[in-house]
């Protein structure tokens, strides 16, 4: 499903965000990406949706080398991947409903489908009664759930979740984890970057630890950090 061969990323300012990463993630897996701030987790995710190109190496998603995609193929790659961005990326002047619907509108989805799917995902993330509010009228955690709703509304085969519980208390976080588990249970591959030790330890899923752009640990039923 997702393969990285010797992938490195050096940003134009000289920062080495990833250095020689080899990785294989199979269909339907649930993977935690952990590591200190600045380790390269967001860079890794941006590379999978080809928002960032590797400096060297190959990134293969669904059997396709994303580096070699033609410009017109990129949107179709992105339609198969849902992304929960670390900074939400919500539109401040659109309602909750419109923010979620936007993701379907701009890929020219039928109106029928939009009217059916948007309320369904809003219900799923528990925001059905906030549909007509603007993002600034919501709490941080509620905004995060809007961005989750938008990421899953198009039934992606891969869900990239960049700290989806970053602003939440434990109970709400756990609610979101149950939601992600449910989505994962339907066959969606989930890659989640997080600093939340309690959650990682409880879930007992595959854990990949990145430090300074290198994979330093990859365990199938791992915990957040090595025991000291």
């Amino acid at each position: 499903m997702i393969r990285l061969h010797n992938v490195s990323k050096v940003y134009p300012n000289g920062v080495v965000a990833l250095a020689g990463v080899d990785l294989r993630i199979e269909r339907g897996e649930f993977v935690f990406l952990v590591g200190p701030s600045g380790a390269g987790k967001t860079t890794f995710m941006n590379m999978i949706i080809r928002h960032v190109l590797p400096t060297s190496g190959q990134v293969i998603v669904n059997g396709k080398n994303v580096v070699r995609l033609k410009p017109w193929e990129v949107p179709y790659l992105r339609r198969t991947i849902g992304t929960i961005f670390q900074d939400f990326k919500l539109l401040p002047n659109k309602t909750v409903y419109d923010n979620v619907a936007f993701a379907l509108q701009v890929i020219d989805a039928p109106g029928r489908e939009i009217r059916k799917k948007v309320p369904a995902v809003l219900d799923l993330v528990g925001l059905a009664d906030r549909a007509n509010e603007l993002p600034h009228q919501l709490s941080g955690g509620e905004q995060q759930r809007v961005s989750i709703a938008r990421a899953i509304v198009n039934s992606p085969t891969v869900l990239l979740a960049d700290e989806p519980t970053g602003n939440l208390d434990f109970d709400t976080s756990w609610g979101i984890m149950e939601l992600l588990l449910k989505i994962n249970g339907r066959g969606t591959t989930i890659i989640m970057a997080t600093h939340n030790k309690m959650i990682v330890d409880r879930m007992k899923k595959r854990v990949i630890e990145i430090d300074k752009g290198k994979i330093v640990r990859d365990e199938s039923e791992g915990v957040y950090g090595r025991e000291v």
Binding site: I49, H51, P71, W72, P75, Y76, L77, R78, R79, T83, F85, K89, L91, F102, A103, V106, I107, D108, R150, N154
Partner: peptide
Amino acid sequence: EVEIMKLVGATDWF
């Protein structure tokens, strides 16, 4: 808007 459109898979022509 344009950034989000691109990230969720809108085509250039859209």
